[in-house]
Design a protein around this nucleic acid. Sequence first.
DNA 1: CTACCTTTGTTTAAATTTTAAACTAACCAT
DNA 2: ATGGTTAGTTTAAAATTTAAACAAAGGTAG
Lengths: 237, 237
Amino acid sequence: MHTYKYPRPSVTVDIVVYGYDGGKQLKMLLIERGGEPFKGHWALPGGFVDLNEDLETAALRELEEETGVKDLFVEQLFTYGAVQRDPRGRVISIAYFSLVNLQDHPAKASSDATKAEWFLLDELPDLAFDHSEIIKKANERLAAKVRYQPIGFELLPAEFTLGELQQLYETVLNVESFNKRNFRTRILRTGILEEVGRQQNVAHRPAVLYKFNQEAYQQLAEQRDGGVLRRALDFEI
Amino acid sequence: MHTYKYPRPSVTVDIVVYGYDGGKQLKMLLIERGGEPFKGHWALPGGFVDLNEDLETAALRELEEETGVKDLFVEQLFTYGAVQRDPRGRVISIAYFSLVNLQDHPAKASSDATKAEWFLLDELPDLAFDHSEIIKKANERLAAKVRYQPIGFELLPAEFTLGELQQLYETVLNVESFNKRNFRTRILRTGILEEVGRQQNVAHRPAVLYKFNQEAYQQLAEQRDGGVLRRALDFEI
DNA sequence: CTACCTTTGTTTAAATTTTAAACTAACCAT
DNA sequence: ATGGTTAGTTTAAAATTTAAACAAAGGTAG
């Protein structure tokens, strides 16, 4: 038992993980809750923060415990602390956000969660707590992020074509399709792509395969104003 | 006394408030700590969250208690939870962020704080806890925010000239001076300004006075992609 | 009252960038 | 060989941006 002079809230983390498999829609990783409250409901992976671990560490630990998904980068999304958001009492939750390649991150339930599954974004079930609100914010963040940071590094296979990269952008931005010629020239001029070969065995002119140039990608990701990239994508969006 | 089955962290809020008075630099509101730890050191206003108040409410309450500053809009910045960030034990702090007009928000110390003062941004003293890190993040957020949201509503007097608005942008972005003619046309075409009269008694051609068009301003502030505004400012930055 | 100073505000032509049409290339299947 | 399909290039017209030159509206000094 632990005793304090003043009352204290519980603190949890929740993790919003987007997965991509090359298709026209993103997926999201959810768990089915094995305990009360909301037993049997779907929810974001997450749980209580240990006193001797940092917040991000807690997020990664809970995610792996509940879904088996690991080896990913997370970024902080928002902290939810409405007085009544959890029926167990005052619980403040720091939400995290991540993008992964679906092939490398299968979901397998364990411990607290009875199931862990990838859901298509427009087929999400009803969610426990205020998790719908968290996901709404995450969607906004993702749409905003795309505009000032490069995406793809975590979502695509190591080598990919410009067509695949464009498909990803169209998926994330939920746009029909933007001009292929211009996407090409603009993305290439950012310098984040490096040619690594050509497609094999396709029934048409083989596309050039690219990989991300780590250094240029990193630089774009860090410059928070996103000038080059924004200008590169500021069309048809 | 309050007893729990598992240990719990303390939860605080910290508030980064920027003030503007028409000059070439922004100011920031700090307090001198009246109690341990870091007694006598300067720090961001802030304090413990009550269990029956929302996070934002706690931020506004602590700010008013410590500095007398009230009636402002805050937005969440980031949550700091490193294990060793506070010598008193595990303390997780949700940082908030705000912009105010200095004329309307004088600082007057009270309660926990012995002093409350506005500091020029490049003359900040050494700070308690990890507050320097918080301010660094706030500065980044401010610079990023300017690019996709209109600013000025909270920072300028009700009526102002285009010159004053431009001065503000130059101050916030920390740029020398950008093209006056283009600033004019770009800002005007966003439709966020409304003419309300002319300057009086100035030793030169009097400038037109503007106020923000609430509706148009609000709309720009909400559309998270910031298209119009970004294009309006994407020059010389 | 006049000349002049300062800052505001407008017009516009040249430079740059964007857009998308037309075209060319590469591969497989039949 | 021919056709189907997707990849990739060239380029001229359209749109936008940039900044030079200029005009306007006050106050002030003599």
